[in-house]
Amino acid sequence: MNTILEVRDLGISFGSNQVLKSVSFDLYENEILGVIGPNGAGKTVMLNILSGILKPGKGSVSFMGRDILPMSIVERTRLGFGRTFQIPRSFENMTAYENGLIGSVYGTGATERAASLKVPAILEMIGLSDRKGVFAGKLGLIDRKRLEIGVALASNPKLLLLDEVAGGLTESEVSDILGIVRGIKEAGVSVIWIEHVLQTMLEGTDRVMLLAEGRDVVCGPPEAVMSSKEVETAYLGA
């Protein structure tokens, strides 16, 4: 298995608060890595470092053999980083279709004409075909989460960073999201998926990593990690 992303000894502090102490892991090509951990463990901060929103205090990140830490947010997007946010950050006064166009045109450098041929297929894949003309701000939560994934996909990512896309959804909606993420994997994309919803981690991932107190504590097959002592300690205390 080829490693697509190599994270070593990643750390960041905000003032005296050391949010990430040391995180290291590998992500393999076409793999879905789930990330779990109690609130405040540093999961979203880690994603923000990977996508370039935050600069780490220490550590290294290489993506397909290239050091990405000096790169800007836009450069990383163009290189193949897709990202969703915990609270969907859609473009509210633009239609679902136009949201997709943004992802495609600016994420890949495609012309608007080329993008207009690609975006409908993506909307189909995420199940928003019948709402493509609706303003993103008028969509319900599940649809905005779908759109968030769609816009990220429109940029043709090699690596997709998902931040709690299943949070706040009903059981059947979670199944929908699971289906979409499986489809993404089949298309050859690697995924890092932060989630609190247990079902998604057990059914939707290849490996799960536990992040606690700013460190990667344990990483392995989903069932093994979920039933490990480390997870119990992290969530319930020693």
Binding site: I53, V74, F85, S90, F91, N93, Y106, S155
Partner: peptide
């Protein structure tokens, strides 16, 4: 239009 709606998100999308 993307920047008008959400500048930070537009940057993540490659603008």
């Amino acid at each position: 239009m993307a920047m008008r709606d959400n500048a930070a998100a537009s940057e993540v999308r490659g603008v």
